[in-house]
Amino acid sequence: MKKLLFCSLLLLLTSGSVLAEKIRIGTEGAYPPFNMIDQDGQVAGFDVDIAKALCTRMDTECVFVTQDWDGIIPGLLARKYDAVVASMSITEERKKAVDFSDRYYSNSLAMIAKSGTNIDPTQLQGKSVGAQRATIAADHANAIEGANVKLYDTQENAYLDLNSGRIDVLMTDRLPGYDWLNSEQGKGFEFIGDAIDIGDQIGIAVRKGDKLRERLNKAIEEIRADGTYQRINAKYFPFSIY
């Protein structure tokens, strides 16, 4: 009897999850062009397009949940959403807390400064260097000797302070930096120095042991193979970012 009850309960649970499966995707919504809030108040951007393509591949419905960056892993662990598609770098430290899918793009770091200021990217002693808190860019900024590092809650706030001149140099991910330089606000600013290769691969975070990971990996492979990925890539960057 007990066994029967258990089996039917199991059946109920699994069938329920198949019928009404909805994957909740956590994203930040403040990291253009990867994830942002568009004019209609909807989440948009590369991450969001990729997440939607993956969901289509997996035949599931996706709902997006926005969450501030420094609470994004805690939110995943607290089951506010099931996967984080928010341009999150795969790092050893984060792997202690979450599992990652294969990469869906790679990133390097770059520094941005006002055009014509001739700041030497190797001589940043005494300069104000900004970065977003809890990012690899912040770690790199913190490692610059003698620099006065300022950490921001969002990338947008860091751009604002770059614009106002409160910081001399912004340490940022190259791709969103590229996007910002092409925007109205980014006029008069430029990359200084070469891109900093940090072996930075961007993956989707899921809770430890969650089977969702394998399904996401398969879906990433599939959208790479059928050209969906390349179409989304071309929509945002004139070069491949995989």
């Binding site: 805690p74 984060r94 808190r133």
Partner: peptide, 11 residues
């Protein structure tokens, strides 16, 4: 918040 960014131990 800066310590949390390094340790991932918000609680």
């Amino acid at each position: 918040r800066t310590i949390i960014a390094r340790t991932y131990m918000p609680i």
